[in-house]
Amino acid sequence: SRHTFEINGERWTVEGVSEELKEILRAAERASNDEAERLLRLALKLI
Rank of each mutant, 00 (worst) to 15 (best):
E6H: 11
A43D: 00
L46K: 04
R38G: 05
G9W: 03
E23S: 10
L21Y: 04
F5L: 04
L44Q: 05
R26E: 12
K45W: 08
R41E: 12
E19S: 09
L25S: 00
N8G: 05
I7R: 00
E29I: 05
I47E: 02
W12N: 00
V17S: 06
L40T: 03
H3P: 05
K45G: 10
R11T: 14
I7T: 02
E19I: 08
T13S: 09
L39W: 06
L40Y: 12
L21E: 02
L40W: 08
L44Y: 06
L21T: 13
N8Y: 06
I7G: 00
E10T: 13
R38N: 09
R30D: 12
A28K: 01
D34N: 11
V14I: 13
T4I: 09
A43W: 05
L25T: 00
T13L: 01
L46T: 04
V17M: 07
A43L: 11
E35K: 05
H3D: 14
E6A: 02
L21K: 00
W12A: 01
R11H: 11
I47Y: 07
N33Q: 14
E15Y: 15
E15L: 12
E20M: 12
N33H: 15
A27P: 00
F5K: 00
E37L: 13
F5R: 00
S32C: 06
L44W: 09
E20F: 13
E19T: 10
A31V: 07
V17Q: 06
E23L: 12
E15I: 15
L39E: 00
N33E: 14
E37M: 10
S1K: 12
E23R: 09
T4Q: 08
E20N: 10
T4M: 04
E23C: 10
S18M: 05
R38T: 08
R2N: 13
L46Q: 06
A43S: 02
H3V: 14
T4H: 11
F5I: 05
G16P: 05
I7V: 08
W12V: 11
L25F: 14
E23N: 10
K45E: 13
T13F: 11
L39S: 01
L42C: 09
R41L: 14
L39Y: 07
L46R: 03
G16L: 09
A27I: 08
E23K: 07
E19R: 05
L39I: 06
E23V: 09
V14G: 02
G9I: 02
L21H: 05
S32D: 15
G16T: 06
I24C: 03
R38Q: 10
A28R: 01
R30F: 13
R41S: 14
E37C: 13
E37V: 11
A28G: 02
S18A: 06
E35N: 04
N8T: 04
L39D: 00
D34T: 13
A36P: 01
F5N: 01
